[in-house]
Amino acid sequence: MTVSAQSQPSELHQTRRRQPGVLRRLLKNLSGTAGLLLVIFYVGVGVMGVMGATPFPPNEQHARDRLQPPSAVYIMGTDLFGRDLASRVIAGAAHSLRVAVTSVTLAGLAGTLLGVTAGFAGGWVDSLLMRLMDVFFAFPALLLALVIVTILGPGTENAIIAIAIVYTPIFARVARAPVLAVKQMEFVMAARCIGGSSIRVLFRHVMPNTLAPLIVQISLALSWSLLTEAGLSFLGLGAIPPMSSWGVMLNEHRALAENAPWLILYPGAAIALAVLGFNLLGDGLRDVLDPRLRGRK
């Protein structure tokens, strides 16, 4: 699956020149715009959660108002503990944002570093690193995450580590392919010939070319990490209660859904919208950044 890289080196280089117009082009793209708006909305809500701008403290229990349907006071209703669901959904946005961004950043950094190193160094370093990635890649994602969290124990930090490890090999692959392609290209050869150091060549010429596929990958990885976190929480391996996490909320209240559907509806919709946002944004970015698609709608 590294094949596609071989057919696109010349176009990749062009990407760099056109970088400045990305946002403008993205806004012309329907799904890109919708995705961007959703993501901005999600991040906004997340920031509200981080700052504690919620109608009630998310963990405050109102014993008398247990399992209230949505009302003027509790706009999304209350849960088993009489906690305000709206506040918890907002706090959950902050939590999921933290998990998604941290894990994807970790995976992106580690993966890119490994991939670029492997691609640039070549030879046995390349073989060793990529075989190692293959070993991790040989496990289905959720299964690998499950094993890691079982070792580390449940909790937000451990979930982040697990998700990061799971997605590192993907980033390594995505980052390595263009490096291999770019390495063969004239301008890199030229830069080397005129005595540019390897490191310099790497940062000045190689890295920028891997950006386009990485950006697309990042937006998709953010959406996966949200779903993975939800999956782990479903298995009781995610955030530790009373921390509000959408996944934990779904898991905690799955059995109550029949009589109190709002308990599933709102956290479910929150996950769906956030994932949708990253997917649409990823689609849009792909359209905009992938030169082969450019010029068509």
């Binding site: 959406s223 999956g231 779904l250 799955r254 479910g268 769906a272 949708l276 997917n279």
Partner: peptide
């Protein structure tokens, strides 16, 4: 199609 992608599987199954 997106609806299919954005829902956690356990929710759809339930």
């Amino acid at each position: 199609a997106l609806a299919g992608l954005v829902m956690p599987g356990f929710l759809v199954g339930t």
